[in-house]
């Protein structure tokens, strides 16, 4: 089970959280002007990155808030956590054990 560092509550076990999918996906606008390729990319296509991956978590059984994390998908180690709306940390540091 992952130990997830919530930026509001500190480290908590994974069962308190729900996973919110890939982070920093921007909904295209205005809807009527968006072509089908752009919709497809937004709705269905995901980077599914092997390595550092920016994702959303919600501390559903804790503070209830969404936040973002960068996690290495080859090790499951968290590299960084940051609040929603903040930019993804540039050049994430090496995954620590």
């Amino acid at each position: 089970m992952l130990l997830i560092p919530c930026p509001y509550c500190g480290e908590r076990p994974e069962i308190e959280f729900t996973h919110g999918g890939e982070a920093h996906l921007v909904r295209p606008a205005p809807p009527a002007a968006v072509d089908e390729q752009t919709w497809t990319q937004f709705l269905y296509m995901r980077s599914n990155k092997k390595g550092p991956y920016a994702e959303r978590w919600r501390h559903a059984r804790g503070c209830g808030r969404f936040f973002n994390a960068v996690r290495d998908t080859t090790t499951d180690h968290f590299i960084a956590v940051y609040k929603s709306g903040e930019p993804q940390p540039v050049a994430p540091v090496k995954s620590s054990p």
């Binding site: 089970m1 992952l2 994974e14 069962i15 959280f17 729900t18 996973h19 890939e22 599914n48 990155k49 092997k50 991956y53 994702e55 996690r71 998908t73 080859t74 090790t75 499951d76």
Partner: peptide, 13 residues
């Protein structure tokens, strides 16, 4: 598991 991963292992719960 709830999250994307390439680790070929998951959590015990």
């Amino acid at each position: 598991d709830a999250y994307n991963s390439y680790t070929q292992r998951g959590a015990l719960h």
